[in-house]
Design a protein around this nucleic acid. Structure first.
Length: 577
RNA sequence: GGGCGUGUGGCCUAGUCUGGAUAGGGCAUCGGGUUCCUAACCCGAGGGUCGAGGGUUCGAAUCCCUCCACGCCCGCCA
């Protein structure tokens, strides 16, 4: 290429030219080269230069033709060769197709880390869906990944739960008892623990704002907990609520490899050690009331926020300080730390990085910041403000609707299997719906959209997989295909599908590099859409040979690729639906 | 006031890092498609000042500047 241009007096490095070679519009060519720059530097009109470059361009390897169109030189791949190579790669790698070479650096993806104070609302779950999908993708990219949940059992939030439940309900303050009255028939045995124990939470939160006595007793409890003398009930309650919360996350495919309880960082002395190190830090000063404050201006924080309080006046730690202890521990265990945080923690992220630098830690966490999910009326979801859609409720509704859909079209399946499919379709719809939008963008929650099984949705992708599975099942061709002829796959629907399948490994690498997990959702939709077009227009089972064998191979490759993508997305592969 | 993020047809959204060919999808609307592998599908139609203005460039949704709107945050909560 560069030699070719060189003959026209245009000298640029091969690397530069490689970068300028870009994807051509689908259906026009595989790659294109815009000659404008070369035209300018050589003085040759762009249109003519494109023709001159394309004419007689030496063909080799997978390059089947070079044409020109306007100011563009278009490169066409040798399609049968591309088809052959792609399908062979998919079959050779199987479940590994899409994965990158193993890498050594151990990575920790910390996500969710919600206080164990009540059921997840949809807003909070965005954290887990982004984090879990990123963890899956990083694993696919070859990294050993541990997902971790940081359990905050030290702050006011969890103390509020312990405080209210340590007294009998008839002794609760009036406002809490009234507000948190459970529905008729509800009991700790019929309700999940997060819902049951979390019910008084927003009312206690309100109470503390106007009742200094109550606020004082919660503050006393916080101090008691931090000093290591938490009532036994405290940990039991936190654990029970957390377990119930985790059960909800499991429904949408989220599980954790590791848990770190904030209290353990206090009890093992690591918080105290961090405080000691800050006392000796060059930019830390003790203020009049005894509070230890760090001036982090030199780390680039805006001056209004450069003062970071390390300890309270009474010497006890604050959340950022404990988070420093936590992250120093993380860096002892992992080469990379990824933190998924809501936009309200944006400043905390910078503060944490500054604090770690001050203590001489060269590494910094990599932050993935996502925007809020808002309720239709506006404002972000909040349990305390009574503005929230709970994950459990959304899932129940989604599963119910999915069940109706399955029953409508599958009378042949036993009810057990219908229920199983409905659960996974409902979960797929919810998970995909939240994942599909770029983390940088806010999401306005609307029931009808979250519950859609059509168009750009999780079930759309799952359906394509089920269709592919069904074809292969009926052909009795579920094993590794053999002896297909790539030349028999020449219809536009076929070659377009192959081109999409070929993009999975690159997409995985891109997502691992950028943390743009929604790109994987977009890819999944494109792959499913491309498969559906093929499926709709190209018969497989009743095709003549050699097309039949070739198409079965293509179906198998599509099933494998879409299936692997579903794995990375955390959606269930359904063999039928 | 400062920091970070966002603004793309009626609604939702991809593309922005790394400038390039008629801005790609979905929902909704209208019109088609099932004697054939699952119609949770497919095909077609209408609908776009890519927030506004300026700049750089052969070329800007994409880069730079200004402004507007919205969200979040701004020391002893987490």
């Amino acid at each position: 290429m560069s030699r070719r241009l060189g003959t026209h007096g245009f000298a640029e490095s091969v690397e530069t030219l490689d970068r300028q070679l870009e994807d051509a519009p689908a259906g026009v060519a595989d790659f294109g080269y815009a000659v404008h720059r070369a035209a300018k530097s050589t003085g040759i009109p762009a249109d003519r230069l494109a023709v001159e470059i394309a004419t007689g361009f030496p063909l080799s390897g997978g390059l089947a033709g070079v044409t020109s169109e306007g100011a563009y030189v278009n490169f066409h791949a040798d399609t049968p060769r591309l088809v052959q190579a792609t399908l062979e790669l998919v079959f050779a790698r199987g479940a590994e197709y899409g994965r990158g070479p193993p890498r050594a650096e151990k990575a920790c993806v910390e996500h969710t880390s919600a206080n164990p104070t009540g059921p997840f609302h949809v807003g909070r779950v965005r954290n887990g869906i982004i984090g879990d999908t990123l963890a899956r993708t990083l694993r696919a990219a070859g990294l050993p990944v541990t997902t971790e949940y940081y359990v905050d059992d030290m702050g006011r939030q969890s103390a509020m739960i312990t405080w209210i439940w340590s007294k009998p309900v008839d002794q609760w303050p009036e406002s809490v008892r009234e507000g948190a009255r459970p529905p008729a028939g509800a009991s700790p045995t019929t309700e999940k623990a997060d819902r049951w124990y979390g019910r008084p939470y927003p009312f206690v939160s309100e109470l503390l704002k106007r009742d200094p006595t109550a606020a004082q007793s919660v503050a006393d409890l916080v101090r008691q907990i931090e000093s290591g003398n938490a009532p036994a009930r405290h940990r039991e309650l936190a654990q029970a609520v957390l377990d119930a919360m985790l059960a909800s996350l499991r429904r949408i495919g989220i599980q954790f490899d590791s848990f770190v309880w904030e209290s353990s960082l206090v009890s093992d002395g690591s918080v105290a050690r961090v405080i000691e190190r800050f006392r000796k830090a060059p930019d830390a000063v003790v203020e009049e009331n005894g509070a230890l404050v760090l001036d982090a201006a030199k780390y680039g924080l805006p001056k209004e926020t450069a003062k970071i309080v390390v300890t309270r006046g009474d010497g006890t730690s604050l959340y950022p300080t404990r988070d420093v202890a936590y992250h120093l521990g993380k860096f002892a265990r992992f080469a990379r730390a990824v933190d998924v945080l809501g936009q309200d923690h944006q400043l905390h992220a910078r503060t944490l990085t500054a604090m770690l630098s001050e203590l001489g830690e060269a590494r910094a966490p990599e932050f993935v910041i996502y925007q809020d999910i808002t309720v239709p009326e506006g404002g972000r979801m909040s349990t305390r403000k009574g503005r929230a859609v709970y994950l459990d409720d959304l899932l129940d509704e989604a599963v119910e609707r999915a069940q109706a859909e399955v029953l409508q079209r599958r009378e042949d399946l036993p009810s057990e299997q219908v229920a199983e499919i409905a659960e996974r379709v409902g979960a797929g719809a919810v998970r995909y719906h939240i994942l599909r939008v770029a983390p940088d963008k806010p999401v306005r929650f609307r029931w009808e959209e979250a519950l859609s099984f059509e168009g750009r949705s999780g079930p759309f992708v799952q359906y394509a997989y089920a269709r592919a599975s069904s074809v292969l099942r009926k052909a009795g061709a579920e094993g590794a295909p053999a002896g297909f002829d790539a030349k028999s796959l020449s219809a536009p629907e076929e070659t377009a599908l192959v081109r999409v399948l070929a993009r999975l490994p690159g997409t995985v690498q891109y997502v691992a590099r950028t943390a743009h997990v929604h790109t994987l959702a977009t890819y999944a939709h494109e792959a499913a859409e491309s498969f559906n077009r093929f499926y709709q227009n190209i018969p497989v089972l009743r095709a003549d040979e050699p097309m039949r064998t070739g198409r079965l191979a293509l179906v198998a490759a599509a099933r494998q690729t879409i299936g692997n993508t579903l794995d990375y997305l955390g959606l269930a592969r359904l063999e039928r639906m």
